[in-house]
Design a protein around this nucleic acid. Structure first.
Length: 130
RNA sequence: GAACUAAGUUGGAUGGUUGCGCACUAUCACGCCGAAAGGUAGUAGUGUGAGGAAAGUCCGUGCUUCACAGGGCAGGAUAACUGAUAACGUCAGCCGAGGGUGACCUUAGGGAAAGUGCAACAGAAAAUUACCGCCUUUUUAAGGUAAGGAUGAAAACGUGAGGUAAGAGCUCACGAUACCCUAUGGUAACAUAGGGUAGGUGUAAACCCUAUCCGAAGCAACACCGCAUAAGAGAAUUUUUAUUUGCCCGAUAAAGCCUAGCUAUUCUCUUGGGUGGCACGCAAUUUAUUGCGGAGCCUUGUGGUGACACAAGGCAAAGAUAGAUGACCAUCUUCAACAGAACACGGCUUAUAGACUUAGUUCGUCU
RNA sequence: GGAGAAUUCGCCUAGUUGGUCGAGGGCGCACGAUUGGAAAUCGUGUAACCGGUAACACGGUUCCAGAGUUCGAAUCUCUGAUUCUCCG
């Protein structure tokens, strides 16, 4: 599953101010309903709802190598979560990495991300009964 | 055996599951474009996929645009000598100076006698030096004098003897320094020896002088396509629709505010998108080969003390665009250091765990 | 990716033809005066670290960090670090 990246800065600021927020040890998750989802669905070849994802790793957390690693870990975690559970589509997701993310494994990050998405209501817990 | 010096190499490996970028091939039922052929998204397969510093952007080039007859001024850079190189502020060799017992290391290393400036405090005086002292005379003064004194980072070559009114490179001997001449060695800087001259402090990473070099900006350059009644964002207002969360009022309900979308209008702000450049290039045909070109890389040989040059053979596949190499598991000796390409190359500088190789020095012990 | 600028006491800053400079001013803070008490006003002091002292005194280092030039560096030169600004 490929994700469409969020490129515009105003979408990030919108997600920060108006979206729902969940803070955990290694990452912060923002979620906001994507009002362009219908447009994107029309543009998409399979006509499927898609979540748009933005990864934010600030320069304070390390050099280019560490930041790239964090982005990969976050992407891998999201992939695992989407594979195992039924995640609702049509949202703007912004994942902000924190300091603890640098040394943690992707499985732990995936567990945290799942908990965050459950608390934000993006995963239907009754369906994904694990 | 210990302690070092110099140069170089390497920069975790193997297997499994899963996942990403690019290139090529195949496929394309369903989706999109097209009248169709077909193309594309997708799917499958194969190949390939980050460093020694990719970093800092400190130098030098290619490349691109602008400017340009030629020259000068201004501004900037460099600075022993000889060479290497496309070029360099880089590199090699060598000389001088400094450091180390030594292998060896460090060195912005032209000119202060072209001129100007500065040298605080202290000191008589910081550059045509006379305060104390010493000596002479016509003794409330003038002259001579750099031996001795005190200051300072720095005070007018050092020691001894002669000399003198007192002194002084004033003279002599020895020694140190700078410059010039001659001889020998070296391409040269320079070294050694002999002779002569001189005593004019430091600072040029102060201005400056001399010699040499430099047009400016940079891939966010630039070219093409497309597009200006355009695209995007924010705010306000109006109409309508949807339903949940929150808030306020309230005894409850109704109604309202707020939030979001769509439509329209007004105001403000921004300039966007795609392709190439760009990953060895060009041409030819046999479509995977050949030829040519590019400061490309590796190996061997020759020349050179060396940087490097020449010849022959072989090898060439990162090319993203919110930015691709990851995650998890197992084993090995340690979950390995510094760290991520963004047009390319030659250097320099800075960061760096561990392992290995070669050459050499000093000290200790044994033979 | 590229081009530039800055860094001085807790905060904001002055200081560069190199010289008596650990360095001036304002805000803040502490103490005192004034007041019944406060505010305002006036006066005095006030950087950090290390050593040292019973406590002071006193000594050393530090102007982002490290080297160099110089008799002498906040200032000049080089190399790094951090922060900020700009780009068709």
């Amino acid at each position: 599953m490929k994700h469409i990246a969020i490129c515009e800065n105003h979408l990030y600021s919108k997600a920060y101010t108006k979206g729902k927020k969940h803070v955990s040890k290694s990452l912060i998750t923002y979620a906001l309903k994507d009002y362009h989802a219908k447009k994107l669905m029309c543009a998409h070849p399979q006509h499927v709802f898609v979540n748009r994802v933005g990864l934010t790793v600030s320069k304070k957390l390390g050099g280019a190598v560490e930041r790239n690693r964090m982005k990969r870990v976050l992407r891998e975690a999201l992939r695992q979560v989407e594979k195992e559970n039924q995640v609702e589509k049509g949202y703007l997701l912004v994942l902000v990495a924190r300091q603890a993310c640098a040394n943690s494994k992707s499985t732990e990050v995936a567990r945290e991300l799942k908990r965050a998405l459950v608390s934000l209501g993006l995963i239907n817990t009754t369906v994904a009964g694990e």
